[in-house]
Design a binder for these strands. Sequence first.
DNA 1: TTAAATGCAAACGCTTTGCAATTGA
DNA 2: TCAATTGCAAAGCGTTTGCATTTAA
Lengths: 141, 141
Amino acid sequence: MSCHKVLQEKGYRLTPQRMLVIEALHRADGHISAEEIYEQLHSRYPYSNISTVYRTLELLKELNLVTETDFGDGRVRYHVAEKGHHHHLVCHRCGKITDLDESALYPLKDTLLHDYGFEADLRHLAIPGECSECRRKGGQS
Amino acid sequence: MSCHKVLQEKGYRLTPQRMLVIEALHRADGHISAEEIYEQLHSRYPYSNISTVYRTLELLKELNLVTETDFGDGRVRYHVAEKGHHHHLVCHRCGKITDLDESALYPLKDTLLHDYGFEADLRHLAIPGECSECRRKGGQS
DNA sequence: TTAAATGCAAACGCTTTGCAATTGA
DNA sequence: TCAATTGCAAAGCGTTTGCATTTAA
């Protein structure tokens, strides 16, 4: 877990709270919300506080150790950066989230760069739509 | 302005508040937030209320007269559906929003459909990144 | 006339902040 | 030791809601 090293090297303190937040982030195999991280932290460290979670996440973001993804459901989710980037197909019907490899968006990234001079940051993309299952079931909600 | 017709045909009342919300949406050449709509409404109708704006937007969304886009800045923006769909390149440095034609995302839409069976809803997509100008200026913020 | 729509005020959910107390280095 | 970090409580923000009053049809 290089997160610990980075924090130490940069002179940040390795508090138990921070270590537990980092652990929770690593344990989550996908994306995890601040609230979910807090639940895990709080269960082992009853006096901890959610503002510590937010502050830790803020710090880890600045150090590029975690990335943030907005799934459009009113809360942001976090993901360990070193696990690599991937994108998300979010089904607006059943809520299922499908991971999409980074490479699937390379053509788009190229197009945007060449035609618009826009350097797209596709680390956090969530694409809404309807998943295969829900399409099969068809029909309106 | 077919919004009015649709509302009437479906049996909804054409209140002055609703008409002003619709006007504001049409006047905005891009995307406009509830707050911005409310400012315009309030300046002509001092006793109006922002909850009316939200309720009207909710209704117009249900009727597919407006679409919603989340630019990731903590507030949602609205856009008249009949003006056609387009996407947005959002510069995280200067905040500039560049419109992107729907067709630019056709290849992606096809890929997602064929490879993942996912029917992407790309009406509301906002792609973060760095615009050409900021790239030219280069450097870290 | 009357159901639909509004204004108001209060609440909501997620996130941020000020500040005094605590703690890792 | 002492600045960095925390817990707590309160606020901040965009949005939603309950309810009595008003109003378009």
